[in-house]
Design a protein around this nucleic acid. Structure first.
Lengths: 223, 223
DNA sequence: CGCTCCCCTTGACCCAAATCAAAGCTCACC
DNA sequence: GGTGAGCTTTGATTTGGGTCAAGGGGAGCG
């Protein structure tokens, strides 16, 4: 293991998960750590690697020239991100908390996909899953109210990261707001409404640990 | 040629375009006409066919239970739509005007893709293009002002369908609004502002023929 | 020609969410 | 234990875009 320029630690490891068990000879797989807040790649940079979250959380976003930000997706342990069909990243990706990622060289992955039909199939599937998420999110951003958006967000996070009945959100209110096309104040108010209605509870003293007390009622709020 | 149950005419023809020149023996290709306003397929229906606009225009949208609508994309001549990786449509598609489409059976296309690597490659490319459009549209829906949205819409349509300097929009203001996450009144007001600023002009007596008089200034408005 | 049905624009008013502001809390660090 | 930097909540106020309403065309048709 060694420490690179950014103070992030890197060492070799196995690559597991949705890309299947690929022949080790074909793909060089590294594990890499990013510190909370550090950039993993930038929008419009050449896409050299494809990434998988091993531990931690990542946000992918676009910026307008005046700083308005839209987060397109949160990436949680197991998720693959930075997969581009063209050779260029279309989002900036940042570690939300200290995060460990596994990475493969994009070109070597493309090379394997040419040989192995199932890998090519997996790449199409992953792209299709990303597309489906984006399509659903367009409906949310274009047509849902603030309460509906926050309800949808909670249901999504509940599905993706609840362990032992508790949802430990890695992201702050501003991240949630930029994901939902709202302001952080509006997100906070919506969460307070849900709290007052008895639909959710906060655990501990930080407001990032949420328990869903009434999933059916929450689901009703997300049209 | 014959007339089917919906009064739409259908006959066989060649399939051309982005799917490349596929062996005719493999793919049965039909041409089909839909009348203005008629549904081509519904959300969550099994995806039996993949479509290409030969002539006319199509809108793909999602509905909330109370009728709020989000149009995800407009499909213009040459565009392929209804391509699903899973077996189910995730949008409803309707003809905006009288429209001719070419169609292939999804399963036969999948079959060809398994044999022919370049076709498989094309499918991934098309899905990636759809994804890129959706990603850009999330930024628009989440973070842009009404004027920025309308400016972006005009630039998109200018790129995609301007002939002889004139943009002949096939869709009504309500469609534009549901694409941009606005109301039709707001779209109309934004167009009036652009008209008053001398950025665009209307041609003829219908307000659907638009001439862009100052593309640079329009581009400045779309951050 | 005149009727009806849309489609579009424009004006008046309203409201959901943004903005502005303040204060409490946690946590890291000295 | 003190200090400061974030993060979050909550309140007051503003505002961009939604809603409601009215009226003017144009296109199709009897």
């Amino acid at each position: 293991m060694f420490v690179n320029l950014n103070g992030n630690r890197v060492h070799k490891t196995r690559f597991l998960g949705e890309l299947g068990n690929l022949p080790q000879s074909e793909l060089v797989l590294n594990e890499f750590k990013y510190r909370r807040g550090s950039e993993i790649f930038g929008e419009s940079e050449p896409a050299e690697y494809v990434y998988q979250v091993a531990d931690g959380a990542v946000r992918s976003y676009k910026l307008l020239s005046d700083g308005r930000r839209q987060i397109g997706a949160f990436h949680l342990p197991g998720d693959i991100f930075g997969l581009e069909n063209g050779g260029v990243h279309r989002f900036t990706a940042e570690a939300i908390v200290n995060t460990t990622v596994r990475l493969v060289k994009r070109v070597s992955l493309a090379h394997v996909a040419e040989q192995d039909v199932t890998v090519a199939h997996d790449l199409l599937n992953m792209t299709a899953i990303n597309l489906q998420h984006a399509e659903d999110h367009m409906l949310l951003l274009g047509r849902k109210t603030s309460l509906e958006r926050v309800a949808a967000f909670l249901l999504e996070m509940d599905r993706r990261l609840t362990a032992a009945g508790v949802m430990a959100l890695p992201m702050c209110r501003r991240d949630i707001a930029d994901y939902l096309g709202l302001t952080l104040e509006t997100v906070s108010r919506a969460l307070s409404v849900l709290h007052d209605k008895g639909i959710l509870g906060f655990l501990g003293q930080t407001q990032r640990q949420i328990v869903l007390l009434d999933r059916p009622k929450l689901a009703e709020l997300d049209l």
